[in-house]
Simulated scan of single mutants.
Amino acid sequence: MAIELTDELIQLQRAAIEAQKTATAGPYSAEAWRPWLEAADQLQAAVTAHAKATSQNRFDVETALKKAVLHPEPTAG
C-alpha cells in the first residue's frame, strides 16, 4: 500500500530542514535552535495525526515523507 502524503506534511518537512540548517549554521544557543525544535515538534505532531487519520504506520509515513523531500523521484523530460 502506497503512503499518501499531503502538501502540508511536505511543507512542514521542508520547513524543519530549513530551520535545522539555520540553527546549525552558527554556534549553539538555545535561542537559535528554538525555531528548529518548534518546527520539528510541529512536523512530528502532523505525521502522527496523519498516520492515525489514515490508519497507516507512523514510521512508514515519516520514512516516506523524508524520502519524498530529501530524495525525490526524478521527473521525466
Rank of each mutant, 00 (worst) to 15 (best):
20 Q>N: 11
55 S>H: 15
64 A>H: 08
28 Y>M: 06
57 N>H: 15
69 V>H: 01
54 T>N: 15
41 D>F: 09
32 A>N: 13
22 T>P: 00
18 E>N: 06
25 A>D: 09
20 Q>E: 12
22 T>K: 13
46 A>G: 04
27 P>Q: 13
71 H>P: 11
9 L>R: 02
76 A>H: 00
8 E>R: 14
48 T>Y: 15
6 T>P: 00
21 K>T: 03
40 A>T: 12
43 L>Q: 04
19 A>P: 04
28 Y>L: 09
26 G>T: 12
57 N>L: 13
17 I>F: 03
44 Q>S: 12
60 D>A: 10
41 D>N: 12
27 P>I: 13
14 R>L: 07
49 A>I: 06
34 R>F: 08
61 V>R: 05
45 A>C: 06
76 A>M: 05
71 H>S: 01
10 I>W: 00
33 W>C: 13
77 G>Y: 04
7 D>T: 02
26 G>Q: 11
64 A>C: 01
16 A>G: 04
39 A>W: 06
18 E>H: 08
66 K>R: 14
38 E>I: 15
57 N>F: 15
22 T>S: 12
44 Q>I: 11
10 I>F: 02
16 A>R: 02
32 A>G: 13
12 L>Q: 06
27 P>S: 12
26 G>W: 13
2 A>N: 08
76 A>Q: 01
55 S>L: 15
30 A>G: 03
5 L>E: 00
14 R>P: 00
71 H>Y: 01
47 V>K: 01
75 T>D: 03
11 Q>Y: 07
68 A>V: 09
39 A>Y: 08
6 T>G: 02
47 V>R: 04
43 L>G: 03
72 P>L: 02
